[in-house]
Design a protein around this nucleic acid. Structure first.
Lengths: 219, 219
DNA sequence: AAATTTATTTAGACAAATCTAAATAAATTT
DNA sequence: AAATTTATTTAGATTTGTCTAAATAAATTT
């Protein structure tokens, strides 16, 4: 099923808002999220209802049908993969990528996004730590830990970073720490809380507690 | 100056059509190019005229103003760089990239395209051999030769390929020949017209006349 | 429970981009 | 040069997505 840009924005918005809360998504919540008027929301929601993409009850709110959810997840997948591309390959900072990825998510080509996924090394989650649905639309929730909480000898993959500041990003870049890098904990130094690690079994460095507190690891 | 998607498509179309011929671009030529009706073309052209992007004379045809040309070249630059991305990084074949790049060319972000350019290694031209305008909109025309016409000892950069067939692309991939690769002619064999070359001063191989006839080289 | 405030929907309008059918201009043929 | 064909434009309609202002429903306050 194909959708217009606007439809895609609405579907993704409903999906994201309904992830945060149990109840139906309200008109105002959507108006707020999409920076548009409540009247426009009602209009569009009714169209989506007629197309069988959402279930809508007047004055109550809206929720996705299975078909709607499937589409929403596809769009989210595209959005998140483009975010990874922008940060990982084009070295954009966290703050700049949202707008661009919101444009890129509408590019319509089935093979494109799977190739992009492969090109990026099948990342587990976006720079902001949101899990990327796989090609089948499944969201597999791996457990994640702070690098701080890994024990000596353990290793895992850098899957997200909690701090978005340019300074932190530059630090990570300089130390060859990137999304998808394999980190092994060599030794945890009690004295100052710092940690000796290796990156990709290559570089051995020591990083402070402040750094390990901001790196999320999956296995 | 910002444009709608449709406006961008028209500007690029006018630019490309007027590159091929001297005279004004006709309504039918554009209708043909954009797969739309002549009536729609007239409508849009009049709007572009009112915005000062084209000069239009009823029944005569249309040409770009300086402002229109500037915009058109920016769009073309984006289109071509995305084409390089798709072929070089995502390993798409020639035939598949046009549609996708036509979508990607409308992504609006100044820094994005310059970073992409850098990421791709500032390619000189698209896979189809069309010169990519630089960030200032300048089109610098370097001389190009067929690999066949290089003399022994000469070297240059693979800048385009004339044959788009999958078979040829696969051949090149297998031989480590890619856009931007450095090729040095070691020896030209009179007997069968084949050529001994090195790629990136590394691999030494022999390629037939049919191959050298389809590779364009810049210095 | 009535009054008021807030949320939501409806009605009507608008801009963008397209279309078809009819009208008109330009080019070509006879 | 008149007739015909082709190219182009105009007129009017349609779809999509948005808006504002007015109407109505739901929630909250008094």
């Amino acid at each position: 099923m194909k959708h217009t840009h606007a439809e895609e924005n609405y579907l993704k918005a409903i999906y994201m808002l309904s992830e945060k809360q149990e109840s139906l998504v309200s008109t105002t919540a959507m108006a707020d999220f999409l920076h548009t008027s409540a009247a426009s929301i009602t209009d569009m929601i009714q169209k989506l209802h007629n197309k069988g993409l959402v279930i809508y009850r007047k004055y109550q709110g809206v929720t996705l049908t299975d078909r709607g959810k499937e589409s929403a997840i596809k769009i989210l997948r595209k959005y998140l993969l483009w975010e990874v591309f922008l940060v990982d390959k084009l070295k954009f900072g966290w703050s700049e990528i949202h707008e661009i990825a919101e444009q890129l998510e509408h590019i319509d080509c089935d093979t494109l996004i799977d190739r992009l996924d492969h090109f990026l090394g099948n990342p587990y989650c976006s720079p902001h730590g949101i899990v990327i649905p796989n090609a089948d639309g499944k969201i597999i929730d791996k457990p994640r830990w702070l690098l701080t909480d890994l024990s000596e000898g353990a290793s895992g993959i850098v899957s997200a970073i909690k701090d978005d500041s340019v300074a932190f990003l530059q630090y990570l870049g300089k130390r060859n720490i990137y999304l998808g890098a394999k980190i092994t904990v060599i030794e945890k130094i009690q004295f100052d809380g710092s940690t000796d690690i290796t990156i990709d079994n290559q570089y051995k460095i020591n990083i402070s507690r402040k750094i390990t507190d901001n790196i999320l690891i999956t296995l």
